[in-house]
Design a protein around this nucleic acid. Sequence first.
DNA 1: ATCATCCATCGTCGATCAACGATTTAGAGA
DNA 2: TCTCTAAATCGTTGATCGACGATGGATGAT
Lengths: 110, 110
Amino acid sequence: MARKLKLECCDCDEGAVTLPADESAEQLAKLAWAVAHPARVRIVRLLVSRQACVCGEIVDSLPLAQSTVSQHLKILKESGLIQGEVNGPKVCYCINPQKLEELKALIADL
Amino acid sequence: MARKLKLECCDCDEGAVTLPADESAEQLAKLAWAVAHPARVRIVRLLVSRQACVCGEIVDSLPLAQSTVSQHLKILKESGLIQGEVNGPKVCYCINPQKLEELKALIADL
DNA sequence: ATCATCCATCGTCGATCAACGATTTAGAGA
DNA sequence: TCTCTAAATCGTTGATCGACGATGGATGAT
């Protein structure tokens, strides 16, 4: 976790380099990582296309075992991109629009 | 690599589901993966902020060993997001605007 | 021709991912 | 209560990541 951060590239003395901070890079990396797997991309798209989706439907729409899908859902949940709501014995997942917008903004600003 | 793809969720018979194909999911996953690491995010940002950058400058701007940075550059190159041009004993890297736009579009369409 | 520099690649190591089956937990219904 | 179902978690396995130092190859300078 050392920090060198010299950035003395060509002597472009624009003064306020400010370099979007490391934090921003880590935030973007984290969100990008969440969608850095085809299965997770498909889950996100599925949840965007319909408002909400029960876990079982997601499992059925992917060629993966239930436990594997559950893991992907966990990753997406941890990233904040999706939310799960317990609904009786089932769990209903939906997109977190704020986080999705955050991802879009961070990518768009690249 | 099996393909189940049932997607018989709620009977929303919108007919043309067309579901962006798997390919698109894999393409997005691949590009997202390229920026799914803070170091690579910083490299991309560095290359966007300046037109081109010699490898050595990139190494100096990151708290990582030269070989590690070279690996990240390789990953970014393989994703198509950046290009490297040999320039004498040095290598000059620059962004591939098309690929970057492709990534932005894929994310924006989520 | 030799040497130094820049960069890529190799080989290694520990950590994490991705997948699965099996098991556990929690809620609904008989 | 007991059972069934839905979903999460556990435990394992093989593959890949991410980091590094060391080595190798190409170019430019002496």
